[in-house]
Design a protein around this nucleic acid. Structure first.
Lengths: 128, 128
DNA sequence: GCTCCTAATTAGAATTATTCTAATTCTAAT
DNA sequence: ATTAGAATTAGAATAATTCTAATTAGGAGC
């Protein structure tokens, strides 16, 4: 495990904030001012390929990185914000249904966060 | 519904192949040679915002578009290929667990397709 | 059938996220 | 110290997508 690899892994594992590569880069620069963005991408890719971190894609947004500990995500339809949520493990249930070995799964629940729900109400509930 | 909007919706709904914007553009040009890629993106974005099509993000790959009819996806860890699979609807079960209204959910099952499983075996099962 | 208005479409520039490449720097073994 | 190999760097390159400004098309009213 390389010098920056270790640091980046620690950053991702020690955070609940679903950072983008750019944000991880900013964090890392605070302790390692000379580090290059390419190094961050290289290490994130390697760590991901090794299964040590998760990568989360939400349509239209830059990929975010996350610890691997089993948990799922709520994604706000309005603003794209991610929130952690821990649901029961579905692997067994899913494997039984599809009949092939499931290595992992990615479950995103789409909802409306409080802020966006309020906005939606305002625009809809007008003067009928 | 605009001229191209309608055509693009038909293309996406009538296909099981999880096309990218570029692929949809190529398809569409066969019947409408003059159409612009920007028009495809504009329409895909509008259709998606209106909830008429789905957008699927897999890390590292261009977004794909899909019909909205309830179904889930198998994603191959090796090559990224998508396959359709229809599992029982989890909305109720999930809503009960998280305690907020779930508008939709996105479930991707990670597995190894046959081709990739074979490759994996070759490289691993060598001479111990 | 014209005229005007608006929305749709277009071309291409711009942006963003990410990857690639080649040069440089480390590291650690000899 | 020397050297080989891996890690890192800077910055160019690429790919996907969005933005902008100009153009076009379609319909409402004359």
């Amino acid at each position: 495990m390389t010098k920056y690899g270790k640091k980046i892994l620690e950053l991702v594992e020690g955070s609940r904030s679903h950072m983008t590569a750019e944000q991880i880069y900013d964090q890392l620069r605070q302790s390692c001012p000379g580090v290059a963005l390419a190094t961050v991408y290289n290490n994130l890719n390697r760590l991901w390929a090794e299964g040590r971190i998760r990568r989360i894609s939400v349509e239209g947004m830059a990929d975010r990185y996350d610890r691997t500990a089993r948990h799922d995500h709520l994604v706000c339809r309005g603003c794209g914000k991610l929130a952690d949520v821990t649901l029961e493990d579905l692997t067994q249930q899913l494997e039984r249904q599809v009949g092939v070995q499931i290595l992992d799964y990615d479950l995103k629940l789409v909802y409306l966060c409080d802020a966006c729900r309020r906005k939606e109400k305002e625009s809809k509930g007008g003067t009928i």
